[in-house]
Structures are given as C-alpha cells and as structure tokens.
C-alpha cells in the first residue's frame, strides 16, 4: 500500500540544498566577519551616524509621500473602469522592474537643473533637487511607491463593495465611507504595503546615487555609505550592512503572517 509520504528524489534534494546554501552562505559570511567587539564604535562614528540619520529621515519621508499619493492612486485604479486604466497600472508597476539606475537617469532628466520640470523649479523657485536630501527622498519615493500602490490596490479590488453600500444606507457619504469602512477594512494590506515601501526606500541605492550623488551628510544614506566604506574601511561597511540586515529581518517578522504562511493556508 502506498503512503501519502513520498521520498524526495535525490537530484531534487541536492539542488534544493544548493539553493538554500547559496542564499544562506553570504549572510553567514557577513555574520562571521562582523567585528562584534568594534561594533559600538563603528556604528557611532560620525559617518555612520550621519548615514543612519539620513536613511531614517529619507526613507520615512519617502514612505509618507508614497502613502499620501499612493493610496488615492490605488483607490482610483481599483475603482476605474476606463480603458486607460491598464496603461496607468503598467506605468505604476514599471519602477518595480526598472533598473534603479535607469530610474535615477530618468529623474535627472526630469528634475535636474536642465530637466523637463527641473529647469522651471530652478528658474522660478531656485529649487535644485539633484544632489540634495530632497532629491534622495524623491528617488526613494519613486522606487518605493509601486509596492504600496500594488498592495493596496489588490486589497481594494478584493474588498467586498457591499460593506460600502451598507455604510451608505446608514447615511455615510463617500468620504465617511472611505475613512470609516473602506480603509479600516484593508488596514492589514495598507500596513504591509507601507512597510514594504519603507524597506524598499531604506535599501535604495541605484536611483539615489545617480540622481542625488553620494555626499556624506547630505545624500549619503546607509547603502551608499556601505558602498563608499567598502574601499576604505571594510569593518565599517560590514557594520552598516548588519544594520540593514537587521532592518530587513524586522520587516520580515512584521509581515510573516502575510507572506511566509501564505502557502500553508
């Protein structure tokens, strides 16, 4: 009689083990080479604290921008049945797959001093985005927002519209329905999308260095500082990498119900 438990074929087992090792060994390497005793000193150095501070400010600001415009965008995309919606959705999704450096170049051409929009910003308001902290925030928001939009739109589309109808029959106008029913009902997706966007903003490298450069104290966020330190102070680079790894693990823990258990349910 056959049992439901079936042995894994050997080749598959070997390849799977290689796969796990391939993912685990680099992380293990990072942990093994971490100069644990020098960690406090490395993480409190002026370059490190500046990068930490900048990363925190820029990633939070970028996340705020993504939520502020991304949630309305997701709502419109979820509601709209206009023919152009698919094109807009594709546009919104593009930064997910676009090489970040291309995003940086595109931002430069749009918001640079000679850029399509940037020249007016400079001529009329004296605003110069490239190589500024604001430029970092812009670059991070550009790559991070799609994560939020996609997550929230998916939740809005699968939400039961009859709750909105029930709220309307109880006297709630559209704004009240949105505020008190629609958004609270998709809160888990909203939180997940926000955390994903934040994680993406925190790790942003390519678009940032292209558009905003690598100026310590102004545009040098954690990933950029790691990159810069790799040549000069390897231990500092490892210490800062560790910070980013811890942040990633924290995100994973926060979202574990959503992604890690998806297959078992």
């Amino acid at each position: 009689m056959r049992t439901t438990r079936r042995a894994t074929p050997l080749p598959i087992g070997i390849l799977a083990t290689v796969g796990v090792a391939f993912l685990a060994i680099p992380l293990l390497g990072l942990l093994l080479r971490t100069p644990w005793s020098r960690l406090p000193e490395l993480l409190t150095s002026p370059v490190a604290t500046e990068a930490l501070r900048l990363s925190l400010i820029c990633s939070l600001a970028a996340t705020a921008i993504a939520v502020l415009v991304g949630v309305p965008l997701a709502w419109v995309l979820a509601q709209s049945r206009l023919p152009g919606t698919t094109a807009v959705r594709a546009l919104v999704t593009l930064p997910l797959v676009l090489p970040p450096v291309v995003g940086g170049v595109a931002l430069l051409l749009a918001f640079g001093r000679r850029g399509v929009v940037g020249q007016y910003l400079y001529d009329w308001f004296g605003v110069q985005l490239p190589f500024s902290t604001a430029g970092v925030i812009l670059a991070e928001a550009f790559v991070a927002m799609p994560f939020l939009v996609i997550t929230v739109e998916g939740a809005l589309r699968s939400a039961d519209p009859r709750y909105d109808e029930a709220a309307a029959t109880l006297g709630a106008g559209r704004w009240t329905v949105l505020r008190r029913v629609t958004l609270p009902l998709i809160a888990p997706a909203l939180i997940a999308g926000t955390v994903l966007a934040w994680a993406r903003a925190l790790g942003e490298f390519g678009a940032t260095i292209t558009f905003a450069g690598n100026l310590p104290g102004v545009t040098q966020t954690l990933p950029l500082a790691v990159y810069a330190a790799l040549d000069t102070d390897r231990d500092a680079a490892i210490a800062l990498s560790l910070v980013l790894l811890v942040a990633s693990l924290a995100v994973l823990l926060l979202l574990r119900d959503r992604y890690l258990r998806a297959s078992s349910s």
Binding site: D160, R162, Y163, E165, A166, A167, A168, T169, L170, G171, A172, G173, V181, P184, L185, A187
Partner: peptide, 21 residues
C-alpha cells in the same frame, strides 16, 4: 438622491456588519 440622503434602513441578507467595529 444617493443612499445616504434617503431615510431608509436596510437589513442585508448576510447582515454586512462591519467586521472592524
């Protein structure tokens, strides 16, 4: 007039009680 401006009470078949409240 939209639903919110009609003096109507609606009991839905599956009640549609707001799960978050």
């Amino acid at each position: 007039l939209p639903p919110e401006r009609r003096s109507v009470g609606f009991v839905f078949q599956d009640y549609l009680l707001f799960p978050h409240l």
